[in-house]
Design a protein around this nucleic acid. Structure first.
Length: 492
RNA sequence: GCAGCUGUAGCUCAGUUGGUUAGAGCGCUAGAUUGUGGAUCUAGAGGUCCCCCGUUCAAGCCGGGGCAGCUGUACCA
């Protein structure tokens, strides 16, 4: 017999999950629409080559991407984000699209990686991108859209922070410490990864990662970048998180000042700083202060394709999980400028900037905040079956309820009345409709309010008990059944 | 991937220096109530003790090797 369970990293979603996701996506979409973005839907499957995850030398797709061969031996893959399919779409329909093109997409993406808490192999993203605009104003708008979107789904101002950095600044800083040029590419990656961990480890652990290496608490060793002491301190000074400066205390102006010192004469670095200054002035003009959008050196993002400004949205409120320990959310959204992505399909460079919300992760954050609205689908009214030979009549009662817009169902199992009551209870039904032979002869039905009924045993005295019982279960003529059920449902 | 920890009923777990038929709580099913869910009482169902090999008269327990899960770390478009 097969074992009835899912592969790890995948999850079923019940009615509550689905309703909550739909509600949240609707809010996100309405903000994106407000900013002028058009919906685009692309398939789950693309040519592996188009996703850019093909390993040409080994003639197979990258690990981490779910892939399979088509009939004609071409490799296909499940999409791992919504950006690569957008690049393909833009390149394929370039002449038809308005430029700049504002696109939004929401949907499932797949990554064949080790799952963990809050990390799945199938998860939902919701993206907004501006393709064909090289202006830094586009980047600023995307950052502001991130802030507006988080507020729209119920994250209060002050409970989130959009952090902004620029890859050119990071590149310039590394040029300044002698890590320029192709020969140092590997060490640059290691340094970037170390900086990316600033929100995870204290400065001293980062120093180890920049230097010889670091051991984790299980004793596993991670090799470092091998920088000398002076270079390490220059990187730490760049972040502004050296001794005595606890992380997260810097303002944008202080970070920019650190950046200026760190990039020195690097032209690329200075360009990046100028871009950040421009964005800063746009944020200020639009009324987005540093409590919402902050320039922050620790934002690095993915290593492959970002070319300019990069953003990350972090939730800053403290929440305790089931085990009482504080829960870290990490980033719930991220993005940046990727000027090279579309040019893979076309000779010319097409500038683009955008961001992606991790829908599933944001949803679990909202759940912990208590911001998930309850499922609005009402529990059904259950019509019990007392006499099997009367099923047709019970079915008629159900139909009448449905025709009046009441969610109702006939008990279709074959158990006795007790089990039927249990069933109704488990369905969270507010009330049941009962008709035995006595009631049928009189043309009546019994309406039983399960919520009131449950309180009967705790009535203080006999009088109260009788009164409650009369309210909880009463007979009405069939003609008045719908009204009576409505009254019970209205009891709330 | 690497490292550490953990695998016993549907769930949470107990299980003596290795000793007969492996337990508890919760949950589940049914009865106590000729037609009434939650509470109480009673009964019942439910186990490849993760798998394989070894040590032993005897293994849930000891040894070796797998596999799976959790945590950390690495990677993360």
């Amino acid at each position: 017999m097969p074992d009835a369970h899912l592969p790890r990293g995948f999850a079923d979603r019940d009615a509550v999950d689905v309703a909550a996701t739909e509600t949240m996506l609707a809010k996100i979409r309405s903000i994106y629409e407000l900013y002028g973005f058009d919906v685009l839907e692309t398939p789950f499957i693309e040519f592996t080559e188009a996703l850019g995850k093909f390993l040409p030398d080994q003639d197979r797709p990258n690990e981490g991407v779910f892939s399979f061969k088509d009939d004609d031996e071409q490799w296909l893959s499940l999409r791992y984000d919504l950006t690569a399919p957008l690049a393909r779409h833009v390149a394929e329909h370039y002449d038809k699209l308005p430029k700049p093109y504002r696109s939004m997409r929401a949907g499932w993406v797949f990554r064949n990686e080790k799952p963990g808490p809050g990390r799945f192999r199938q998860f939902m993203q919701c993206d907004a991108d501006i393709v064909g605009a090289g202006s830094i104003a586009a980047d600023a708008e995307v950052a502001m859209l991130m802030a507006d979107t988080l507020e729209a789904v119920g994250i209060a101002r002050g409970d989130y922070l959009i952090k902004v950095n620029n890859r050119k600044v990071l590149d310039g800083m590394m040029e300044a410490i002698g890590l320029g040029g192709d020969a140092e590419a590997a060490r640059r990656l290691t340094v970037l990864r170390a900086i990316d961990k600033l929100d995870k480890f204290p400065a001293d652990e980062i120093r180890k990662l920049l230097g010889a290496g670091r051991k984790d608490e299980s004793g596993d060793f991670t090799k470092g970048a091998g920088l000398d002491a002076e270079a390490i301190e220059r990187v730490i000074a760049f972040t502004g998180w050296g001794d005595g400066a606890p992380q997260g205390t810097l303002n944008s102006a202080a970070s920019l000042e650190n950046f200026r010192k760190a990039v020195g004469t690097s032209q690329r670095g200075q360009d990046g700083i100028a871009e950040l200054e421009t964005m800063q002035s746009l944020f200020t003009a639009a009324g987005y202060d540093e409590s919402r959008i902050l320039i922050d050196p620790s934002v690095v993002r993915g290593l492959e394709y970002y070319t300019g400004p990069v953003f990350e949205a972090e939730l800053t409120f403290a929440v305790k999980g089931d085990d009482g320990r504080p829960v870290r959310f990490g980033s719930v959204a991220g993005g940046g400028r990727y000027d090279g992505l579309v040019s893979r399909f076309r000779g010319e460079t097409v500038p683009a900037t955008g961001f992606s919300i991790g829908v599933s992760r944001l949803l679990s954050a909202l759940r912990l905040l208590g911001k998930i609205e309850h499922d609005k689908t009402p529990a059904p009214v259950v019509v019990l079956v007392m006499d099997r030979d009367q099923i047709a009549h019970y079915q008629k009662l159900v139909t009448i309820l449905r025709q009046n817009g009441l969610r109702a169902e006939l008990y279709l199992g074959d158990a006795g009345m007790k089990a039927q009551m249990k069933y109704a209870d488990r369905r969270h039904a507010r009330c049941v409709v009962i008709q035995g032979s006595d009631e049928r002869e009189r043309g009546e039905v019994l309406i039983k309010d399960l919520v009131l009924g449950a309180t009967l045993s705790s009535a203080p005295d006999r009088e109260a008990y009788l009164k409650a019982q009369a309210e909880a279960q009463f007979a009405v003529s069939e003609a008045l059944m719908v009204d009576a059920v409505r009254k019970v449902l209205a009891r709330g």
